[in-house]
């Protein structure tokens, strides 16, 4: 990077950018450290540091919020959503990657739309519909609602991935007499494993983090971690703030672990959907 571009304007704009980024990092770091600090505080009134440290809020969170139950629900929902969307989504991605047919762009548009429209917009009619079918408030209802954005996400992540697998490999296998299902299980799937892992982990993270759809469809026994965290924060005052912060830290540790696992397979740049035309 240049010795040339050090005009005053260039230097100044660079500093402004760096200052803004530094402010962002301070903000996020401060927010995170405050929560972490408070979750270990006996009490914290006005000083730079809490008055004393304790680990009891984590034990409190486990007892008071029924943390194990919530974690199990979260796990069931996230794993079911991931499993179903991979099972249904990967073949669809294969079809979209390898075939050309009339109405393909319509199908693609239909798949992009649930990712473009924010969940709360279709979540309310969806929840109304699930109430009508007596599915709202149940685990099945929460899983169904979460499938709406998860499945298109898998298809759109997997399609370019399968596109870059050389079709000649499949042709060769077929020419040597492998039936379709064997081409799929012996040639395509092994090559697609990194993509499937990445897509699966990303869907897992997104489902664990999905607030709106779960919030709108969950009943008392089908709340995931985010939603019960929201209810806890919403009714602050009932419980000590430190215990909510302890829950929030547990939540963050969970998603961070999943995300770090996902980062082993995908570049962060590709983490957000990249729309190409």
């Amino acid at each position: 990077m240049g010795k040339k571009r050090k005009g005053l304007a260039g230097g100044l704009s660079a500093w402004l950018v760096y200052a803004a980024v530094a402010l962002f990092v301070v903000l996020v770091g401060g927010v995170f450290l405050s929560v972490l600090m408070n979750s270990f505080a006996t009490s914290w009134f006005g000083g730079w540091l809490p008055d004393g440290f304790t680990g009891k809020w984590y034990a409190f969170a486990v007892d008071e919020f029924g943390l194990w139950n919530v974690l199990i629900v979260t796990l069931i929902v996230a794993l079911s959503v991931t499993g179903i969307s991979l099972l249904v989504g990967v073949p669809a991605a294969y079809a979209l990657a390898r075939r050309d047919f009339r109405g393909k762009s319509l199908v693609l548009g239909l798949l992009v739309l649930p990712l473009l429209v924010p969940p709360i917009t279709y979540g309310i009619p969806l929840a109304t519909m699930l109430y009508e079918y007596r599915l709202a408030g149940t685990l099945a209802g929460v899983i169904l609602a979460n499938l709406a954005p998860a499945l298109p996400f898998v298809v759109l992540v997997m399609t370019p991935f399968i596109e870059q697998i050389d079709p000649n490999l499949e042709r060769a296998a077929r020419m040597m007499g492998a039936p379709t299902h064997r081409v799929f299980t012996r040639v395509l799937l092994p090559l697609a494993v990194p993509g499937i892992l990445a897509a699966g982990l990303l869907v897992l993270v997104r489902t664990v983090a999905m607030f709106e759809l779960t919030f709108l469809t969950a009943g008392p026994n089908s709340q995931t971690l985010v939603v019960s965290l929201y209810y806890a924060a919403f009714s602050a005052g009932i419980r000590p703030g430190q215990s909510i912060d302890a829950m929030a830290v547990i939540y963050m540790a969970t998603t961070l672990l999943l995300l770090l696992a996902a980062l082993r397979f995908v570049n962060p740049v590709n983490m957000v959907m990249r729309v190409r035309d």
């Binding site: 927010v31 995170f32 929560v35 965290l229 929201y230 909510i244 912060d245 929030a248 939540y251 998603t255």
Partner: peptide
């Protein structure tokens, strides 16, 4: 992205 809305909100209230 992993922080989650509630953690950010809680942290902002404190920080």
């Amino acid at each position: 992205m992993t922080l989650g809305v509630v953690l950010v909100a809680q942290g902002m209230l404190t920080f």
